[in-house]
Each structure stands twice: as C-alpha cells, then as structure tokens.
Amino acid sequence: MKRILLVEPDKILAQVYKASLKRAGYEVTQVSGAQEAIISANDFHPDIVVLELKLVGHNGVEFLYEFRSYPDWQEIPVIINSLIHPREFASSAILWREIKVAGYLYKPQSSLKQLSSAIRFILDKEAQSSVPASLKRIENFYTARDFGF
C-alpha cells in the first residue's frame, strides 16, 4: 500500500482528505506544519507528499527546500494542493526545477476525485505517458510542462 504524507493545516479539510485518500487505498499520515512534516517523513517514509503551501510558521516552499536537502528524499514526488493559485508560480523555476514539484492542484477548484487521480498518475510511472481522461479535462492540475519547464 502506497504511503501519503499529507501536509494540511486546516483540521476539517485534513479529515476529509485523509478519509478520501484512505478510501482510495492509501496509507495516510496527516500533519499540520513544516516541522511536523520533516519528522513524519523520517518516521513514515512516504511514497508521495501532498502539500499545502500556506502553513503556520515555515511555509510550504521552505519545507520543500529542507525536504529536498535530504539525499533520501530528493526523488519522492510532491504534489502541491494549495489555496495559492498556480499562476503565481507560472514563471518561477523554483518550484519546477529547484525543488522539483511533480504537480500542482488549485485546492478551491479541485475535487477529492481529482486529487486521487493526480496522485495515482504521479505514482504510476507506467501511466505517465498518457494522462488519465479525468485529468485531461481538468484545468487545475498543472505540471512543469504547462509552464514550459
């Protein structure tokens, strides 16, 4: 069973996302902040991280810089699921090249189903050559290609 580290500060959304992802067949650990996330990554060994950028204290970008500084975690895919619109990072190489974000969902417009599909897409390396139909229709899932990176 694949393991997801869910970094989500809002308690209500966290409960909903966790329940949905568990139903989709994943093992989920949820934390609220950057510091907890680093500790959990060390204990839980996630296969993928789902991350909100707006956190208390250190924000999600700061977390990612630290996360990527550990050799064991450099290849773990990270999907951003954030209240911040991805257009704010459209011309920024930071997310796509430096801290290697695998995909970006704009949270207000992304459903639970879309999140599950995005995770499945990223985790399933063999399926990456063809984007699932549900993702092709959705404008809110962004990858590096969408921004020319």
Partner: peptide, 13 residues
C-alpha cells in the same frame, strides 16, 4: 473560500 471548500469536500466525501 475555506468554509465553502469544507462544504464542497464534505458533500463529495
């Protein structure tokens, strides 16, 4: 946005 998202996701769940 936050309460509206909570409503939308809870309905979906």
């Amino acid at each position: 946005k936050l309460p509206l998202m909570q409503i939308a996701r809870k309905v979906e769940l």
